[in-house]
């Protein structure tokens, strides 16, 4: 049966537009503009400005990932426990915003957060002091959480709904209290979802250049902004590729983590 050869179109496509392009990044990253082999594009990450952008990106995306987890886990639990998570509702709530353009949605936070924006006006009415987080790291974190929270909730929700109710009931019957049931039964069983949620939030947050552009003003540069500028403004593809290779190390680590947990699950 030659059915497996039907994979050929996809394999060729993936080879041409996934694997070879990744090879191009490695090629450009390891050569200079004359084509001579060099490590300088990768070592450029240690220059003060690039290092600052990388550390800032790591810091902000770590904070966002932790906050997404803290906000998203209870939400996933509520969705799974009330049965509202079954079927269309979750998809409706989380996929629907994507039909309003991602840039416009993020831009709208400017209107909400501005000095004379909606939130400060509301706070004023309530007699509370105004907040000023626009064009700061805080606004970028908020934008990251806003955009990537669904990627945390959906995988956790999937692994929570797979948990057999009888296992939870058995733990209760055997005398475990609410906390014990959560920490010794539910949480360990949902770890695969948590890990895939963490990677699905951390990677896009770490590499974003749009959110920092829209909500951080033009002063805050993340590593994503640096790379984007190398490609679209400076035109130094070699340096841009070298810096991307540094990012790919983070991506690779998260891919391997996901793979390992995937295998354990299967």
């Amino acid at each position: 049966m030659s059915r497996k050869y039907l994979a050929a179109p996809y394999l060729l496509w993936a080879l041409a537009f996934v694997l070879i392009p990744l090879g191009m990044i490695v090629y450009y990253g390891l050569t200079d503009s004359n084509g001579a082999v060099t490590l300088s594009n990768i070592l450029a990450i240690s220059s003060p400005e690039h290092r600052k952008a990388l550390y800032l990106a790591i810091g902000l995306s770590l904070i966002s990932t932790v906050l997404c987890l803290l906000m998203g886990y209870p939400l996933a639990m509520i969705l799974a426990s009330t049965g509202m998570g079954k079927g269309a509702f979750v998809v409706l709530v989380f996929i629907l915003p994507m039909w309003m353009n991602f840039l416009l949605r993020t831009m709208a936070w400017q209107t909400l957060l501005e000095k004379n924006g909606v939130i400060n006006n509301l706070l004023g009415v309530l007699g509370l002091p105004p907040i000023s987080i626009i064009n700061t790291g805080g606004a970028i974190i908020l934008g990251m959480i806003y955009n990537f929270l669904p990627f945390m909730v959906l995988p956790i929700h999937t692994s929570l709904s797979k948990i057999d109710v009888n296992v939870v009931n058995a733990a209760r019957d055997l005398g475990a209290n609410g906390f014990q049931v959560f920490f010794r039964v539910i949480l360990p069983l949902s770890i695969p979802g948590v890990i895939s949620g963490i990677t699905m939030v951390f990677i896009p947050a770490l590499t974003t250049f749009v959110i920092s552009n829209l909500l951080g003003g033009s002063k805050i540069l993340l590593i994503g902004n640096v790379i984007e500028q190398e490609f679209t403004q400076t035109g130094n593809w070699n340096l841009g590729s070298g810096l991307s290779m540094v990012l790919m190390i983070f991506i690779l680590v998260s891919m391997i983590t996901t793979f390992i947990t995937d295998k354990e699950e299967a």
């Binding site: 990044i25 590499t207 994503g224 990012l247």
Partner: peptide, 8 residues
């Protein structure tokens, strides 16, 4: 990351 896919 989207940015890596895009530039590749």
């Amino acid at each position: 990351a989207d940015i890596v896919t895009g530039i590749s």
